[in-house]
Design a protein around this nucleic acid. Structure first.
Lengths: 184, 184
DNA sequence: AAATATAGATTGAATGTTCATTCGGTTTTA
DNA sequence: TAAAACCGAATGAACATTCAATCTATATTT
């Protein structure tokens, strides 16, 4: 059943957010998700496999969200803005994701993890378009996209971790700053 | 003896970098550092206390490095550039710090952790200077400094995690992009 | 200068707890 | 009625931490 799997994912996000990567045990997780410990192992081979599956699930949802909201008829600047806000909103809607995601991508698990390339390529391709159109500065698109993604994460960390009050006009300021730096 | 303490810190960085935050046990750490398990508990109350002390040690070293390299006679742009490069170089010189640092600041440990404010204030104050001088855009300096720090971290992650080749001219490009976004 | 005392540093085997994982059995679903 | 989903107590390994004993270095006494 998909519901139990999702309950496990949701609980994992909540518990990891609160107790950290370590600090979250499988029995805790089972209890919180309302399933037996054995059930988790019916769906996932191990704790590590569950965590990797959760990460994949999140990345898939984010990429889908980005793809459906993208509109090639808009100007590149508008697409840039939309993309930035899409990632931001994704996390606002799922406030437990950020900590999990950041813990995961900074863990040695992540090294040699295939999903990594997918999201990287997705962003690089977008900025390559901008470079080809002569709008974005002609620098390594991997670099550009890394800084772009990083600026969303920075903003989210300020909001979630540091409780810096960020309103809609602040968001536009941040996006503008990022844009100004990247255009020719 | 200070050497044993430093050996424990160095080993912790190395092991956490390789095996993650969890995945690094105290017996492993003791063995790697060439001390007995009990010795670690002579210096630190617990594993968590050791990790917090390690973080404090790193932040202190970074702030000292920033303070000694700062020169108020230089132009604000030059100071901006120097500051960016100082953080970058700090990590290049200590390649095991980044993973540990990022794991730590994204863990729930970090919430309500006094050292956090110190580094935040240090950066905010710098950008407040720039704003007062009419050089930096008049936005919340916490926001500005968060994005500044974030851009260094993004660059470092690309270098260390994604093995993106970043040379000296790339660094200047990244700093330039960041600068262009932040000036009036 | 030698002998002794003292405190702090260091050891590592022992402890009790917690953990990820298993598996024989039960319930649900198709 | 068979297969798949689910349960949760049981298991053994790994873990953080402790502590009584030993060592080291320095201070104090003879």
């Amino acid at each position: 059943m998909v519901e139990k799997k999702q309950a496990i994912f949701d609980s994992a996000l909540e518990l990891i957010n609160e107790c950290g990567f370590h600090g979250t045990s499988m029995s805790q997780l089972a209890k919180h998700a309302g399933v037996a410990a054995g059930t988790i192992y019916h769906y996932f081979e191990s704790k590590e496999a569950m965590i990797c599956a959760l990460h994949t699930d999140i990345v898939d949802k984010l990429l889908e969200s980005l793809t459906t909201s993208d509109d090639k008829n808009l100007s590149f600047k508008e697409r840039f803005e939309k993309r930035w806000k899409c990632i931001y909103q994704f996390h606002i809607d799922r406030p437990h994701v950020l900590r999990f995601y950041e813990q995961f991508v900074n863990s040695p698990f992540y090294f040699n993890y295939p999903k990594r390339k997918e999201i990287q390529l997705y962003f690089s391709a977008f900025f390559q378009e901008g470079i080809s159109q002569g709008i974005i500065i002609d620098k390594n698109p991997e670099l550009i996209s890394g800084l772009f993604f990083g600026s969303v994460i920075s903003a989210l960390k300020m909001k979630f971790y540091r409780k810096v009050d960020i309103d809609g006009s602040d968001l536009n300021d941040i996006i503008d700053m990022q844009w100004k730096g990247m255009i020719i």
